[in-house]
Amino acid sequence: MTNIIEVNQLTKSFGSATTVNDVSFTIEEGKIYGLLGRNGAGKTTIMNMITAQLFPTSGEIKVFGEAPYENQSVLRQICFIKEGQQYPHLFRIADVLDLCPSLFPNWDNEYAYSLLEEYKLPVKRKIKKLSRGMLSSVGIVIGLASRAPLTIFDEPYLGLDAVARGIFYDRLLEDYAKHPRTIILSTHLIDEVSRMLEHVLLLDQGKLIINEEVDAIRGRAYTAIGSAKIMDSFMSGKQILHQESMGSIVSTTVFEPLDKQTRMEAEELGLEITPVSLQQLIIHLTNNTPKRKVDLNQ
């Protein structure tokens, strides 16, 4: 496998705040990656550095084997759909699309216009006058039709309704199957997107805490629910991720795969075992507030 991106001990500080803290990872060719984490975890900062729009404080980035800064052969292979992309204030949708063929070597104009139609975008309208959802759709159209070898979507579906998001997933998978390329989806909305991903990079407060195939993460945790007395003995020696109590009932999320023996042990004790979705797991891993307690006895 060829590495499209190599990031080595990357750190970015703004004054005294460190937004990206000693992060290292590689992105392999032809896969769909998820760059996940809460708002402010450092996702956008990392993407801005990969595309040389921000400079690292320390560390090294190689994209297509080279430093991306002012590197035409690297940059022309990247399409970065930024959540906060600025547009000149007179620009209409059509104006931006007119520029794309000269910016992206693989641009498919026909495909772009078919997507515009599907999203019912008013091409003559000024970008400044678009709703948040329409703005996201414009980004999706450009990102897909650019067919760039490295396509990066930063929060691609802010403001999109379920139907529009569905169109995005369908078209992305369809076009990715026809024209395989490396795609990074950065989002804090993990729920829907997780099954489209092959690999997950999870950031928390500037640090990379998970770098794994997404299916390897699924099933890595489970939740046991039962009375507090029984729970204590069951939980001893286990890695507890999260605990909530409601009266005498305790719900504990354990960060370990559930093996057959543990399952039988729990069943004998009368504990209820439920699976933990990827979304829930990531919420637990990145929730830095003190443990939540629900007390109904008050």
Partner: peptide
């Protein structure tokens, strides 16, 4: 109006 827009579209600073 145009600098950040251009950079966002993979344009080099020099260009």
């Amino acid at each position: 109006q145009t600098f950040s827009f251009s950079l966002g579209l993979s344009v080099r600073r020099k260009d």
